[in-house]
């Protein structure tokens, strides 16, 4: 009986996926309680603070979306949550850029970590688009001016008829739904990639060795 079950499991997509996950991402990698001693550097904090700021960006943005666009202009509570959203975005980008430069100078793509770097770079790009649609959704003078200026760049590459920066409804929809989902998925993937491979070891202490990315 047990042999029969094992054979069935052997062809099961679910079982195969579980085995892959168990092999490639064991719990001790996903939630580690020990790390190599060189992880004591402050540079490792940048990524964690970026994630923390993203959480505040999403939570403050959720509150703003819940009460609607007029709320953040016409009530002091709305204005306060708009301020929380504004500053959490600033903190998010400051630490994401610090994280990016830190990882660059650590050559963090070494030893099979190139996909991790690439997903991080894509996340950075998508975050910029998300912030851009957010600035367009402010419903103030800044949003108006950014829109009329940005239209020329967007139109010049032929996408202005489909990504219309003068259309508040389209920009707001992208900003509160599709782009945050994209960033969240990418960040989750990025974290899983980091946990699967572990933190990158220090660069070899020899100038004769070339960094090899894969």
């Amino acid at each position: 009986m047990s042999t029969h079950v094992t054979n069935e499991s052997g062809h099961s997509w679910t079982a195969a996926t579980r085995r892959q996950l168990e092999r490639r991402l064991p719990w001790e990698n996903l939630l580690p309680d020990r790390q190599p001693f060189w992880v004591g550097s402050w540079v490792y904090v940048f990524g964690v603070v970026t994630i923390a700021a993203l959480v505040w960006v999403i939570l403050s943005g959720t509150i703003l979306a819940l009460f609607g666009p007029q709320w953040w202009h016409l009530s002091s509570a709305g204005r306060f949550f708009n301020s929380l959203h504004f500053w959490s975005v600033q903190v998010f980008f400051v630490f994401m850029v610090l994280h990016l430069w830190g990882q660059y100078f650590m050559a963090s793509w070494r030893e099979g970590r190139a996909p991790t770097w690439m997903v991080g770079a894509v996340t950075f790009g998508v975050s910029i688009v998300a912030a851009f649609t957010g600035y367009l959704s402010q419903q103030n003078f800044d949003a108006q001016w950014i829109a009329v200026n940005a239209k020329d760049a967007v139109n010049s590459i032929g996408v202005g008829g489909f990504f219309n920066v003068l259309n508040f409804g389209q920009m707001y929809g992208l900003h509160v739904m599709l782009l945050p989902i994209g960033i969240t998925v990418l960040v989750a993937l990025h974290i899983v990639q980091v946990r699967m491979k572990g933190v990158v070891p220090p660069i070899a202490d020899s100038n004769a060795v070339t960094i090899k990315g894969r």
């Binding site: 505040w56 204005r79 959203h85 500053w87 959490s88 903190v91 419903q139 003078f141």
Partner: peptide, 24 residues
């Protein structure tokens, strides 16, 4: 990181607010 970043964000929000020049 969550707590420290929240304190920083709260500080900026409370003391500096955010830009909102009315639309034309």
């Amino acid at each position: 990181a969550m707590v420290v970043s929240l304190v920083v964000i709260l500080g900026f929000a409370m003391f500096l607010s955010s830009p909102d020049v009315p639309s034309v």
